[in-house]
Amino acid sequence: MTATDTAPAIVPSFDTPSSTGRKLAIICSKGSLDMAYPGLILANAALGEGVETHMFFTFWGFDIINKKTMGDLKFTPLGNTATHMPQGLGGIPGVTHMATSKLKKSIADLDVPEVPEFLEQIVASGGHLWGCRMSADMNHLTEDDLYNEVEAIISASDFIEKTEGAQLLFI
């Protein structure tokens, strides 16, 4: 015992006025496995802290919510010096597949879900998913092509309007 007990009780302040009403907007513009996870992890963390969270999927980020690709995002060491592998290796056939499998295993080992299940968890936590209108039009995709829980395909200005006052992350 290093201190004596005194009233009032020490209680965590979970619902401080400064934390209520906080909003976060995350723009996901990349469709590789290693660039999908940062947005998903941060969205999940923000929701767990009671932050209203909106994700906007645009350009290559559309792969994260496209039913055809969402379960099959890839990772390549090519052009990524942070893998500390000789860059020439990245171009050899099969290396992307190998690197993807290895990264997926490392992620699964941490009990972190695959992309579709992660989106499901984000939605169950109250997160909002939006598809980018221009990306959909460019790729001739409609809401039917997207993960069911995507609320709508909206324009960039609609997204900016919906996230008024939010903190913003561009990934």
């Binding site: 965590p12 979970f14 619902d15 209520t20 767990g48 802290e49 009671g50 009990d111 879900p113 968890q121 169950a124 936590s125 109250g126």
Partner: peptide, 26 residues
């Protein structure tokens, strides 16, 4: 973590947010 409470504990994430609003894990 919340995910483990859902996956291993069998309690849906949605319910956890309803029962312990805003910051369920903490």
């Amino acid at each position: 973590t919340l995910r483990r409470v859902t996956v291993a504990g069998g309690i849906p994430t949605k319910d956890l947010f309803r029962l312990f609003p805003s910051k369920p894990a903490k």
